[in-house]
Design a protein around this nucleic acid. Sequence first.
DNA 1: AATTGTGAATTGATTCACAGCT
DNA 2: AGCTGTGAATCAATTCACAATT
Lengths: 204, 204
Amino acid sequence: MTDKPDIPRKTVYRLSIYQRCLRRLRENRVETVSSEALAKAAGVTPSQLRKDLASFGNFGTRGLGYNVEALSGTIGETLGTTRLQPVILVGVGNLGSALLRYHGFNKEGFEIVGAFDGEVGKTHPTVRVYPMGELEGFVSANGVKLAILAVPASVAQQVCNELVAAGVQAVLNFAPVVLEVPEQVVVNNVDLAVELENLSYFIR
Amino acid sequence: MTDKPDIPRKTVYRLSIYQRCLRRLRENRVETVSSEALAKAAGVTPSQLRKDLASFGNFGTRGLGYNVEALSGTIGETLGTTRLQPVILVGVGNLGSALLRYHGFNKEGFEIVGAFDGEVGKTHPTVRVYPMGELEGFVSANGVKLAILAVPASVAQQVCNELVAAGVQAVLNFAPVVLEVPEQVVVNNVDLAVELENLSYFIR
DNA sequence: AATTGTGAATTGATTCACAGCT
DNA sequence: AGCTGTGAATCAATTCACAATT
């Protein structure tokens, strides 16, 4: 069971990145890696990497480095990605259907088990699209905790409320809106316009 | 011209969000807003909002609040989004073509003026798709500074190098890879798997 | 000899609280 | 009376630097 030594959110982000680098090392049959090498691959400083890992345990061997396999396993445990995590997607428009077709998730332990859309009769070649009315039943029947929200801004808060009511605990939100949710629900935002504006500022 | 009083990156992100809230207020003919109200809409504390704005000037009127129109204008100036900014998209796969169809950008001052793909002969209903060979010419002819990178991880670094060589100054990267770029080039990453893993950790 | 783990130092971001305008 | 602008205080994150370990 994942107990939660409270690791800061930014650290958790970096753990995912380390995890990806470790996966690549494993594919290349590398057994051991130093904080310096791994940090370089992940684009951080070695100090930071060591501190990050220290926040939930001691796994390195001084003078040697980290065992790739073992570290990767521990990070997976910590993130809670060792088992496949079922995810639903809500809003099968442009972006939504691209996400359904995109299978990059599976490799990393997520599977989109169902999609929902307000407009009845929508379909998708590989994932079944349900009407919103079936949301609650589906979520509890399948133990879904995680939802991807890809609906238009105008209805995002409303649909988010339905997700919360259905028992969803975490939302990856693509709508350009600041969602209000109860304390125990987590929201991460992916906001393309904000990212572009940010870049726009940093262009000389 | 945008001079750059160096505003911290996190503040710049929030400016975009304030900007969006201001736009909505403007649509509703609201003339004046207090730091408290705007902060609430943006999901931050009033103090933080005031500090953020203070980092590049003084625009409020004590006792009254901020003029919506004026503040929005200044933020637009600061972010460099008052003029339409031309953007190219590289990699017309699943995600890439969804982004081409998605017009949420235009409203916020960005226009995808061309797309590029390694595979010749790709097309798209509204945006012209060019072969990679024409990248450099296109970028300099159209004054493009900003690129969206939506190619597979395996070729992302390579393609990114070509972008940099062509003169692109900022990249919004969707590939799950840590890109290496020269100092003067800015990269923002949107990494869906990392976001999901992050949520996964915070689910009880 | 190499490399981790970590306390101390530093740097950065956020919040407080109130003086100063309108 | 109300609300901004801001210095001071707090809190958080990062880096340094070195003792501890293999």
